[in-house]
Design a protein around this nucleic acid. Structure first.
Lengths: 238, 238
DNA sequence: ATTGCACATTGACTTTTGTCATGCAGACGA
DNA sequence: TCGTCTGCATGACAAAAGTCAATGTGCAAT
């Protein structure tokens, strides 16, 4: 993932169809092409910091980016993960307020950047991009609302299983024996920060879940050995 | 609050300036007036149920409405509170998906209703209403994101104090001696459901907080006796 | 191959929160 | 005024999760 291609033009971007920039004309793409910049990022790099003013939006062509919130005591939480095809930073672009959380590279990523001033012009010329931002906002909102509901209602084990299943929906595959497998894109500490917990507790939950035969962990590779039980426990709704 | 007035026309609605319907022309208001219905609700009544299809949006003229999510085991959580001037149900109107949570009356309320079919026509004729929904969505999102962050990072006491301070910002006032006071609009059990806890734990947190001299509880009336300490503990940011 | 390092696990213990049972007080209708 | 009901508080105990310390493990650089 995220290896350097020959070119990174929007017109040939493999993930553009999943973004707010799908369905634009050749001329519009060319306009974006002229004002955008793009580069490869290493894990740990930061696209923008919590509290910074908005300078534009970032479109993730490949990789994984987390939005991390740090409170006054220095405790941090991962509020959201954004993968290929996701545009981030649009919220503070629209509100003109500072970023509420940092955007931190979690996996090697290739990310494009469109400066606010250029984006404002694009929005005036193409009102349908605004409509796409509304759709995006609503999708994000449902996502966050589910997280909130689970964080209010579930125990550690339930929340952890949910995270695993979300990763499975995004990245999961089946091996030659048709057994479901998912590679976790982030480390234990970050999983803990997604559900408001600590890495030690994650370890304990993992060994408990393995003992019960629901999952089998091999470092970041997870074999889902009892899908039904997990789906039942996680709950189908929401 | 929420007593029956002589009339409940949008044109004279005291809370309209806070809603998506502000800034509409006389003719547009008259159009809404023709298609809307409105009535008074008692606590416990439900505007729509989790899982129901969307039939329109509800505009709260006066009172308090909570969106309650219930999981498979029957545990419930209050995800959001909506007070006067707030329009709810717009999300599933826009996505055409079922409601993710119920809307339950928490205080006596007067609520207007605009059917989907009529609202669709209004939106076509008045694109700026769509823009207002985007603003509303973003505001809701920031609200939920704060809740999520606190729910991931904070302990019970911190989350409880935050809820109190939110109520204070909305409803708080000062007595003759200039001491800050807030009347809690909901009971302990519902506060517990807002922060993923139980009423007994809320009681304990309250007696602890009283012992420390931060707040003084008289049933639902709360005297804020050490504002600085509370603001420090809750944290100014986000 | 060896060392160093970041990540992960495990154990012992503490703290926080939930659970269950009980009692009390204010609100309301008969 | 009397019972009844709901909300609230408290005590005793159980369960869940965090903390601190020690140890293990794979990986990369030398």
């Amino acid at each position: 993932m995220a290896e350097m291609n020959a070119s990174h033009k929007c017109a040939t971007c493999p993930t553009r169809h999943k973004t707010e920039w799908s369905g634009l004309s050749e001329a519009e793409l060319a306009a974006i092409e002229k004002v955008k910049s793009a580069r490869y990022y290493e894990p740990g790099e930061v696209l923008f910091h919590q509290g910074d003013a908005n300078d534009g939006v970032y479109c993730i062509q490949d990789g994984l980016v987390g939005s991390r919130y740090v409170d006054a005591e220095g405790n941090s939480a991962l509020l959201q993960l954004a993968n290929a095809g996701t545009t981030i930073g649009y919220r503070s672009f629209l509100t003109k307020l500072p970023h509420g959380s940092s955007a931190e590279i979690l996996s090697p990523s290739f990310v494009c950047f469109i400066r606010s001033s250029a984006l404002s012009k694009l929005l005036i010329a193409n009102p349908q991009i605004g409509e796409r931002f509304l759709q995006h906002a609503i999708k994000d909102m449902e996502d966050i609302e589910i997280r909130l509901a689970r964080s209010l209602l579930g125990n550690l084990r339930n929340k952890f299983l949910h995270v695993i299943m979300v990763f499975y929906q995004q990245n999961g595959y089946r091996d030659k024996n048709n057994n479901p497998i998912v590679e976790l894109p982030i480390k234990r500490t970050d999983i803990a920060e997604m559900i408001g917990s600590k890495p030690e507790s994650i370890s304990r939950v993992i060994s408990d879940i393995e003992k019960k035969g629901l999952l089998k962990f091999d470092h970041r590779r997870v074999h889902i050995t009892n899908m039904d039980a997990i789906l039942y426990e996680v709950g189908i709704t929401l």
